[in-house]
Design a protein around this nucleic acid. Structure first.
Length: 807
RNA sequence: GCGGGUAUGGCGGAAUUGGCAGACGCGCCAGACUUAGGAUCUGGUAUCUUCCGAUGUGCAGGUUCGACCCCUGUUACCCGCACCA
């Protein structure tokens, strides 16, 4: 067939229909085959439709899944929709359309688009996080957490987005900006729901040792959890009966403390306001800090500000010295105890502060120049009583902690940067939190048998100006009977954040229609863990942490069979615009994948996104690159008419085929799709150069190409009169012996410089290779009057002769 | 500031992990077929060159018979975290 006659789109639609009719991508829950669970991050069905980023994100495991099926695995490769979330709700508000309507429309569109690309998803297992049958279990897991004390309410300072009018978690407000609208976050004291993820900090950390994640994915999670070890120390106050508790990683520097600093929000201030002589100044400073945005606070890092509290003095527990207490915003209420002991000699921030306020600087570790700055290195302990003379940091820390514990003034402590997960949102389009507030019983869980607690239909989805959820305006929803005492009570009106539904979706895929459990135990045992999970780097400190946490909780409950949900995690790089910039509507450099499908076909699109560069790295889109892939596929089509009889590889191409089978198979395993395709192009060039191809060779080429360009492979396979579908055919295997060529060309170097190339049998010994090298005319010429000092032979690669003039 | 990464032709990127740098694709040049070519096919394409060769993987050194690869220093860019005590 001529490539000009080949109609990409018609052919693609035909095979998509045939795959669906035959159900070839349906996963089997009972199978004698080995299982393979491939997971990709399910999309948020935005109104904008599918992005080329989705194509790249899904194409990687799409290829792996297709290969695995051909290798005889029972493959689960599911897809679904993470459909709760603010963009849909905002769109609904703007257009006055119900989010349900918008969501259904978007899911329908996404589904059609995904199908047009020919992904081999199991469409019978689609989950939608906003469906009652699904969020029933999201609520169920929440209630289990509530039961175990992992879901709780607390009055605390939270990240608040004034524009979206919602409380955000730390993960959702990185860099002090709202994740959704990018406005500046403000800190607000609020009574909010938390999930106690910090309880799982160590488990999340330790679990990383058992899984095969990309190193940078692991590292980012380690940093995000931010475990630090140190000690808590209790300082008593001189004027009142109160202890000021601090956290430090360097308890060994306790003798160098010359002042204390507490956060502006520290409760001590309010408690003892009568005692504080300059309370007006303190209040003024607090007000000043509250005004600063997160941005200003980080920009003014070097410039320390603060106020000395008059009327309260701390006592150093090890030497009884009186120490002044300051408030400053360089100490955060959210980390440690919100109070620190300041050791200006050995901490840069404390040093800056001491210099500015003229506070003493007492060295306790030898080294450095304290006129220049703080000394943060190691050294011998001085001015430190029982620690004097110790030179090892670990020893001195241990000795100090021992002393503190013995005297009951402190103990070993661990802190995490990760904070508990602020979980409720004052918005409509999310899972209702199934809790009832009762005057008599407090917070009461909605009984499990009443789940799902349905999200009521409303007319208006706008959040209240007072920061209340739209659900608060519905008396028929709010007013209820307390499940415990039966007296009138009020429902919780906040909803769960977007990340709730996605924290366990990979479990629902295993048994998506089960009405009695989130998934059947036998099926969980069979399919879990996810063998390979691919997604974006942007989810490493959000979804990936959250879902590991939920899964570990379910594991501790005995509800899932494995401790870690994902055995392997990889991440794809971004596709940049043709200008090399990140794609964005404002830059006008967005490529619509469906346009590419229309113009070139899905096979070309799929092949190009995998060929364009290293899968894990960002790469710019290139229209010409797309055409190059089209040309490659066209050449494969054109070969069809030239195929001759032959049930085995011809001698001329046998080695090339075996090597290509090996290369393509191996490269797909390590996600080096670009070089796998390059190997196929090289093979095609060899075939073209050789001038002929037979049936065995052509069908093998089609099989190797089929994971990348499945429609084209199916079509040509059927035109060849082959039986069945190529997606169910056996993946080609190679024979290692046949990969070796009879003879190889090796380079001959003299003193490390290449002087000649010679052809030798590939099984030649070192002696034979060196002899062949010396026999070469050019080499022999240069050896005249020289002594060979050393000879090297790198097998099958090169010979190096080290020579010098003869005496 | 801390952590992680990257740097190779005009461009995207290869290089079996210490052994022939530039696979494969794009682009470009030349030719063929064409009324035509932005279709297709064929050949060429790192730089310099006195055509012998010389140089070349951000920069400066080092180890080695041999370095894109290992070591030391340095510069630039990207990503993540960031006054975390």
């Amino acid at each position: 067939m001529n490539a000009k006659e080949y109609q990409y789109r018609q052919v693609e639609e035909k095979w998509q229909q045939k795959w669906e009719d035959a159900g070839v991508f349906r996963a089997d829950d009972k199978s004698g085959k080995p299982k393979f669970y491939a997971l990709v991050e399910f999309p948020y069905p935005s109104g904008a439709g599918m992005h080329v980023g989705h194509i790249k994100a899904y194409s990687g495991l799409e290829v792996v899944s297709r290969v695995r099926r051909m290798q005889g695995y029972n493959v689960l490769f599911p897809i679904g929709f993470d459909a709760y979330g603010l963009p849909t709700e905002n769109y609904a508000i703007k257009t006055n359309t119900h989010p349900r309507v918008v969501t259904d429309r978007n899911i329908e569109r996404f589904t059609a688009q995904l199908k047009r690309v020919g992904f081999s998803f199991d469409w019978d297992r689609v989950v939608d996080t906003t469906e009652e049958d699904y969020y029933k279990w999201t609520q169920w897991i929440f209630l289990k957490m509530f039961e175990k004390g992992l879901a709780f309410r607390d009055q605390a300072l939270v990240n608040y987005c004034p524009s979206c009018k919602v409380v955000l978690s730390n993960e959702d407000s990185q860099n002090g900006k709202c994740d959704i609208c990018h406005s500046d976050i403000v800190q607000k004291s609020k009574d909010v729901w938390y999930l106690r993820i910090t309880e799982y900090a160590d488990k999340l950390l330790e679990g990383l040792e058992q899984v095969d994640y990309l190193p940078n994915v692991k590292q980012q999670q380690v940093n995000w959890i931010g475990r630090s070890t140190g000690a808590f120390v209790n300082f008593s106050l001189k004027e009142v009966d109160e202890t000021l508790r601090i956290y430090t990683t360097r308890p060994d520097t306790l003798f160098g403390v010359t002042f204390m600093v507490i956060a502006p929000e520290h409760p001590l201030l309010e408690t003892y306001q009568d005692r504080i002589a300059n309370y007006a100044d303190v209040l003024a400073y607090k007000a000043e800090c509250a005004k600063k945005s997160e941005f200003e606070r980080t920009q003014l890092v070097k410039d320390k500000t603060g106020v000395c509290i008059q009327g309260l003095t701390a006592i150093n527990p090890v030497n009884g010295k009186e120490i002044p207490i300051y408030i400053s915003d360089y100490v955060m209420m959210g980390y440690g105890t919100g109070a620190i002991m300041a050791v200006p000699a050995h901490d840069e921030r404390d040093y800056d502060f001491a210099k500015k306020f003229g506070i003493d600087i007492i060295p306790v570790i030898k080294g450095g120049d304290l006129n220049e700055g703080a000394y943060t290195g190691d050294g011998e302990m001085i001015n430190s009583d029982f620690l004097n003379g110790l030179t090892n940091k670990k020893d001195s820390i241990e000795k100090m902690i021992g002393e503190l514990s013995a005297r009951g003034i402190g103990e070993k402590g661990v802190q995490y940067k990760m904070k508990d997960w602020a979980f409720n949102r004052q918005r409509y389009w999310g899972e209702p939190i199934p809790i009832v507030h009762c005057e008599h019983c407090g917070m009461v869980a909605v009984p499990y048998e009443e789940l799902p607690l349905r999200l009521p239909k409303v007319e208006h989805f706008e959040p209240g100006t007072d920061g209340e959820s739209p659900l608060a305006k519905l008396p028929e929803f709010v007013n209820c009977a307390c499940p415990k005492c039966g007296k009138p009570a009020r429902r919780e009106t906040d909803t769960m954040p977007q990340w709730a539904g996605s924290s366990w979706y990979f479990l629902r895929y295993i048994d998506p229609h089960n009405p009695a459990a989130f998934a059947d135990r036998d099926k969980l045992n069979y399919w879990m863990p996810v063998d390979w999970y691919n997604g974006g780097m942007e989810h490493v400190t959000r979804h990936l942490i959250y879902s590991r946490f939920w899964h570990k909780f379910l594991y501790d409950l005995g509800e899932v069979p494995v401790a870690e949900p994902y055995a392997k995690r990889t991440a794809q790089g971004l596709i940049l615009g043709p200008d090399g910039e990140k794609m964005s509507k404002s830059k006008g450099n967005v490529i619509d994948p469906l346009d590419v499908v229309d113009e070139f076909g899905a096979d070309v699109l799929r092949t190009y996104v995998l060929f364009m560069g290293d899968y894990e790295k960002a790469a710019p889109w290139s229209e010409n690159g797309v055409k190059g892939c089209k040309r490659f596929l066209d050449r494969v089509i054109n070969l069809l008419d030239t195929v001759q009889d032959g049930e085995t590889f011809s001698p001329a191409l046998e080695g090339a085929f075996h090597r290509t089978i090996r290369k393509v198979s191996e490269d797909i395993e390590s996600m080096k799709f670009n070089t796998a395709l390059a190997a196929l192009m090289t093979l095609l060039n060899q075939i073209t150069d050789g001038g002929s191809i037979n049936r065995a060779e052509y069908t093998t080429l089609l099989k190797l190409l089929s994971p990348f360009a499945p429609h084209l492979a199916e079509e040509l396979w059927s035109q060849m009169g082959e039986q069945g579908m190529i997606c169910t055919a056996a993946w080609p295997t190679y024979d290692a012996d046949k990969c070796i060529e009879a003879s190889v060309e090796i380079a001959v170097q003299i003193n490390g410089k290449i002087r000649a190339r010679v052809q030798i049998p590939s099984d030649a010994t070192a002696e034979q290779a060196i002899a062949a090298a010396k026999a070469d005319g050019k080499i022999a010429e240069q050896l005249v009057g020289m002594t060979v000092i050393k000879e090297f032979y790198a097998t099958g690669k090169l010979v190096n002769l080290v020579i010098k003039p003869a005496q």
